[in-house]
Amino acid sequence: MGGIVAKDGSPQTSVTETKLEAKINEAVRRREVKGSSIKSFNSIILKFPKIEESFRKYKTTFEEFDEDGNGAIDLQELKHCFRKLEINFTDEEINDLFEACDINEDMRMKFNEFIVLLCLVYLLEEDSTAQHTKSLMGMPSLEATFETLVDAFVFLDKNKDGYVSKSEMVDAINETTTGERSSGRIAMKRFEEMDWDKNGMVNFKEFLFAFTHWVGIEDNDDEDEGEDNV
């Protein structure tokens, strides 16, 4: 994929996508056609406790697939997980997903990385015509949470190009905090937390990793311990 050009004419950084990222972004853009039920960023924040609770319910599922009990899922364990949950992805697709979500590049998938991967699977499966589309993993409450996350991203991506820019994040925050002097600072802090690769654009995967941090399910929160919360 080539560079991204904003519909509002604002300059945006060129984004290079892998084959998997392109597939995910295409699925996001198709989902964006439906619009979002979310009306403000504050309404997303209010959902944090319920989302965290939903995630943590599946910690036991994560531990079940952590066959050697080392606190992480490796590639072979993930393939066993997919087979047991009857998620019909090829080995190549599973390899690509594992690599994309192994944010620490240590060939070990921690709980927050596992949650992000499952959400990407949900998006891709919902976008497909597979017969099990509406019963992904047999986890209806987790699916409902994932749908909330997709809805939140659609709300933030004002121009529906599959990426959230700084200006879009500012717009989203300002819709809630119009007139507050701190709104710009809040927006920039949130955007920086999402923009993992520092290219000025946030894709759905980056948004998901930031979200696991916001709701508190990351394994390591030390680096941001001293920062003020919004």
Score class of each variant (00 low, 15 high):
K79L: 01
L20M: 09
T61Y: 03
Q76T: 08
I73N: 04
K23H: 14
L117R: 14
N95C: 04
E52A: 06
L75H: 14
P11A: 02
P11W: 01
I73Q: 01
F65T: 00
E53V: 03
D66N: 08
M109E: 11
I115M: 06
T13G: 15
E77P: 02
D96E: 14
Y58C: 00
I24L: 05
V33K: 15
S37P: 00
E63D: 12
L97E: 04
G71C: 10
E92W: 07
V116R: 05
F89M: 07
C101H: 13
H80L: 10
S43C: 02
K34M: 07
S36Y: 05
L97N: 08
A22M: 10
S37V: 00
G71I: 05
N25I: 01
P11E: 00
E93T: 08
M109S: 13
E93D: 13
V116S: 09
T90K: 14
N88Y: 15
G69I: 02
E86Y: 09
L46G: 13
I24V: 08
T18G: 10
R29F: 03
R29E: 06
E113V: 03
P49Q: 03
I38T: 15
L75M: 11
L117G: 03
E67S: 14
L75Y: 15
V33D: 09
F89A: 03
A27P: 08
F82D: 02
K23S: 13
D96N: 13
P49K: 06
A72T: 15
I115H: 03
N88G: 09
S36R: 05
R31H: 09
K19M: 05
H80W: 04
I45L: 10
S43M: 02
T16D: 07
V28E: 02
V28K: 03
S37D: 01
N88P: 07
F114H: 01
K57G: 01
I44C: 12
P49D: 04
I103Y: 14
V15W: 12
I103D: 14
F114W: 11
E67T: 07
I45H: 12
D102K: 03
D91N: 13
R30Q: 06
L20N: 07
I73D: 01
L75V: 04
T60S: 15
Q76I: 02
E93Q: 15
F65E: 00
E32F: 08
I24G: 00
D91P: 12
P11R: 02
M109A: 03
L46K: 11
R31Y: 13
E105W: 12
K50S: 12
K50G: 11
K57Y: 01
I51V: 04
I24H: 01
E105F: 15
M107Q: 15
I38N: 11
T18V: 10
K50V: 05
E26I: 03
R29Q: 09
V33I: 11
I44W: 07
P11G: 00
K47L: 06
S40C: 06
I115A: 05
N112E: 14
A100M: 12
I94M: 14
C101R: 09
R29Y: 02
S54M: 05
I87A: 12
S43R: 12
L78K: 04
I115Q: 00
T60L: 05
N42K: 06
A22N: 10
N104E: 07
D106H: 15
